[in-house]
Amino acid sequence: MSESTNGTNGTNGREDQSLAYAPVAGTEGAKRGTTKLKIFRGDAEGGEFVEYETDMIEGMVVLDAVLNIQAEQAPDLAVRWNCKAAHCGSCSAEVNGRPTLMCKQRVNEYEGEIRVQPMQAFPVIKDLVSDVSWNYEVSRSMTPFTTSQQAPFTMYEEDVERLYEPKSCIECFMCQDVCHVLRTHHKHPEFAGPRFFVRGQWLEMHPMDEANRLEYLKDGGGGIGYCNITKCCTEVCPVGIKITDNSIIPLKERVADEYYDPAKWLMRKIRGRKGSRNGSSNGG
């Protein structure tokens, strides 16, 4: 097919008509032998690792390999993906026991075996796909942005710059997957997980937000006390959010202000103001 790219087609002499036959981009010239992957094949009932061999293409990521295998050898291999550019957070899986965005992880960075399996903190549906719907339930349970002010807001860069980091979360749920509170201890009903502490952080720190989520974070399903700040979530976040340092600990400190600090408690009693926070537009 690519031959016709060069073939001129002179129906009229006005312009080079061959431009109407565009090159079809192929992978020729980028093949670098083959590579092997062990991929989990199975469903909720169980399954096994199956080894596949596929072409190694220069610069290939794990997702490329999986999709090649799907197109050529295993049409029913279930996998999630969308953007292929680490923007959407769909392609989370565990590669060699570590949560990884498959579209971001180069194949040639592994020496030896590559084992791909679905995230383990959630029920497996099939192959590389697990059921992450629980996360959306948690999202629903959290008070959304609430304000009595009317946009357009006057907000300054220096007041909001620290919110850009939590806002960049792509909801890959890998932090949820790696968190031992969920993964090992299955505290799903009582614990929102690092992803939602990240969300809680920007909500609580937003200059215009007026809701108070501290009660939720402490007891109402947030369960932030279950987090023992062991930082596995921070280690896996593909967009580099310092989840523990910048989201969880600041929220733990705010919870401490409200529930564990006798001096602050006394002050609130004396001043007769409850729940007001420093500098919040409602706080005064």
């Binding site: 565990e94 026991g97 570590r98 509170v181 505290k187 006390g225 279950y226």
Partner: peptide, 27 residues
């Protein structure tokens, strides 16, 4: 954090309290 290491965690889900029981004092 690797899955192999996490499987070694000695505590059972019922016994895990994080910073909600004794360690709440860390506040």
């Amino acid at each position: 954090c690797q899955s192999k290491a996490q499987q070694r965690e000695p505590r059972s889900p019922e016994n895990y309290n994080g910073e909600r029981a004794l360690f709440v004092l860390n506040n």
